[in-house]
Amino acid sequence: MSVNERDPHTGHMLTGHEWNGIKELNTPVPKPVWIFLIAAFLFSVACWILLPAWPLGSTYTKGLLGTDQRDVVTEQVHNAAMARSVWTGKIAAMDYAAIRRDQALMTMVRQDGHRLFGDNCAACHGINAMGGKGYPNLIDRDWLWGGDAETVAQTIRAGINSSDENTRVSQMPSFGRDGMLDGKAIFAVSQYVLSLSNPGAVKGTPAETLRTGAKVFADNCAACHGPKGLGDHAMGAPNLTDNIWLYGGDAQTIYTTIYDGRHGEMPAWSPRLSATDIKILTLYVLDRGGPPQ
């Protein structure tokens, strides 16, 4: 094949190379390509002149703009904190009741609390704070540990059965596994517990069993759950009469709870979250539960 062959379709010359039938045109690189290449190079040169760019031994060219990503971030974080301090300062200074009366401040709490709760608490308590099995509903006004603001804040700060030295400690003993009660007694007391909130569910149960259950309860459970089963905030022991269940209120689950015991855990959030953040979360949780009583 001649080097001077011309491709009839494009009118360009061929290079004369051929590989298994593939030929090449000798088309020059179009001008715009060079223009773009030069433009991209100029853009790069501008970046190199303005920004930190080329290493020089143990240092580097700092760039005419004199920016540095660390300084930029530090400054941005500082400025954001300053802007927020307008209202976070008030949160830190005022008491809970006063803040809850201040609608403007509560708007901030709701906005910030939504994000804080979503990023830190929702994994266990659910995005709506309504909990799930083993994780309490935080907006039903039924509290394990008590619902006044300082108590809730303390729960969040120190956690429950956590590694923090001030942690709240609670334990539902495993009466069956540890051999404190036999199966019959556990069955009886579980039926009794069921009858406290749901008398209809134990219609078929012999009165004798319920009486035994009541006795077992008085002997073994009342110390924590109270003589009437109304619970005790000091022990973190739930109210058993209200049809609000942490682990479940059917006969089988109650039996399992008593047999195996329960040991809920919640991590401590101080110092991971700042005191103000914990205050905001406390307000947020209480606010989600409805207006102050």
């Binding site: 491709d7 379709h9 593939i22 045109l25 690189v29 390509v33």
Partner: peptide
């Protein structure tokens, strides 16, 4: 390889290939 072979057309520009 497969595009020019299938299209049965020469490569548009040898120079662009190099650049």
């Amino acid at each position: 390889y497969y595009l020019p072979k299938r299209a049965e057309r020469p490569i548009y520009s040898y120079r662009m290939s190099i650049v």
